[in-house]
Nucleic acid binder design. Sequence first.
DNA 1: ATGACTCAGGAACTGAGA
Length: 264
Amino acid sequence: MRIATWNVNSVRLRLDNTLAWLAERQPDLVCLQEIKCQDDQFPRAAFEAAGYNVAVHGQKGFNGVAILSRHPIDEVTTGLPGDDSDVQSRFIEVVVSTATGVVRVCGIYLPNGNPPDTEKYGYKLGWMKRLKTLVAQRLALEEPFVVAGDYNVIPTPADVHDPAAWAGDALFLPQTRAAFQELLNLGLTDALRAVSDAPGLYTFWDYQAGAWPRNNGIRIDHLLLSPQAAGLLKAAGIDRHTRGWEKPSDHVPVWIDLDIAPRG
DNA sequence: ATGACTCAGGAACTGAGA
């Protein structure tokens, strides 16, 4: 079973790229972020025609997350618990059925948090604390469980081309990295780092200042695995070639293969 | 370098992104 995450930066503008990548990579389940549209504007029919069930948690103009699944979707939950005043669409969770049992997947678009001296950073840290609470609850279920998405966290200096340039950024501040480490300490495994300790594995290159041709990238899109999922991990990868396509997203897809029978 | 680029909304620009 192949599970992927991709911040597409507008699903409507990126529909052709997304369909092309689905045909190429053939994922069984995909978490999409920054769909930047409301539920009724989501190109549902195009993805259904490609063989996917669709769950959407949209928002006008900004944010918005969705999950595509070839497996039947048994449950959908939207919105990260813990703050009733939070109206931003950044969290969607599904349970899908496979031949060997259920798999639980959360798709997240964690807040950017810049500038750090504003309430935006407090919102980010609060969101991470709420996510930690939810993950702890889900881990108690002892299921194959994946938290996939745009974390807006550079975990270590090995995950950024120019660490000094990001020193004061909300994505790389010590407090941000510590909160990410707290998630791992609950018992989650960073799938990509479970298969490679190589430097230069990036998932985002800014549109500005020639970041892509200079390979001035960062790794901020992650798939974190419960012990039951980590035990099934066969492979993980980053589809960086999509950054070179026409009209690219500034993020690229990240995927894992779990030793669970695929479907379709 | 004070910037660079790209998106949605809405119809000229701003806010947001990271």
